[in-house]
Design a protein around this nucleic acid. Sequence first.
DNA 1: CAGAATTGTATGCTTCACTAACGATTTCAC
DNA 2: GTGAAATCGTTAGTGAAGCATACAATTCTG
Lengths: 159, 159
Amino acid sequence: MTAQAALIEDNPAAGVAAPANELGGLDAILGFHIRLAHGAVYRHFAEAFADLDLTQKQVSALWLVSEFPGLSQIELGGRLRMDRATTMTTVNRLQARAYLRRERSAADGRKQALYLTAAGSAVLGEAKACVADHESWLKARFSAAEIEKLVELLARIHE
Amino acid sequence: MTAQAALIEDNPAAGVAAPANELGGLDAILGFHIRLAHGAVYRHFAEAFADLDLTQKQVSALWLVSEFPGLSQIELGGRLRMDRATTMTTVNRLQARAYLRRERSAADGRKQALYLTAAGSAVLGEAKACVADHESWLKARFSAAEIEKLVELLARIHE
DNA sequence: CAGAATTGTATGCTTCACTAACGATTTCAC
DNA sequence: GTGAAATCGTTAGTGAAGCATACAATTCTG
């Protein structure tokens, strides 16, 4: 074993001059930063919603159905970028907890129109307060202009 | 059912003036945009790596071990923001495919020093070419200055 | 040296995302 | 109109991720 290898093994970040940081060349990969940022946000969200026991996806679904009552599953999935199968399991879970109800669409018999229940409305109200806290935590590190810019850049990716 | 409700059911995006876009108030949530952007990147990555059958996490792990040979699992997990259990399963998978090998650290008997195998080096070489393509797809929508800014902003979230 | 901390390991649970198939319904083409 | 194609919901199965918990081995601390 070389002296450098021993150094690396003891403290991998030390003794290596070329990669300036502990991530090496990975630090230059934009996709990697998106991945890490998402993970950090995901974890904080999960923590913030431990009491309500809701995931990002579930809150998004409730929120969207609240703003667009009668939304079909396929529409919901499309806007949240989920396929039909994933949308199903999300709606199933929310329906099982009586936050959401399905209703066969009168206009199109293939579709299920989605509506919030009273319990769903109530929990969404609490959830929005938690989202506001979560967003405050997230946005605390940025100026208003930076937030606007960040949202605009991110939107270019997922649009 | 009101006339507006019928309209909504037929075409949920139409007939609703208040929310300017199809996401309603969700569009103002930064965390939501991070989530969608990550999803889009994740999907494109999976598609780009279908042949190599590698995930983001696996490529990141190979990459990091390549730059820091002898890295311990705990160090690998720490830099990739994974807990020990998750790191285990990732390393297990890569070891099962003979891309990675474990070696008990001489300096610290608790640690497993990680090294790439020849096969691991070879596949990482191919992977890096795919990553370059994937990054090109991702970065095509931004200027160089925007990319730099975006990375900096994202780093503030996960640091 | 004894107890505390660290690291790896094993097990189990949950969520997420996707594919493939099938039935019901609607829409399109002729 | 009628038959074919497309759309939507549903179910089942697969795999990756992430987390908590518990336990063993090793190292560190006092």
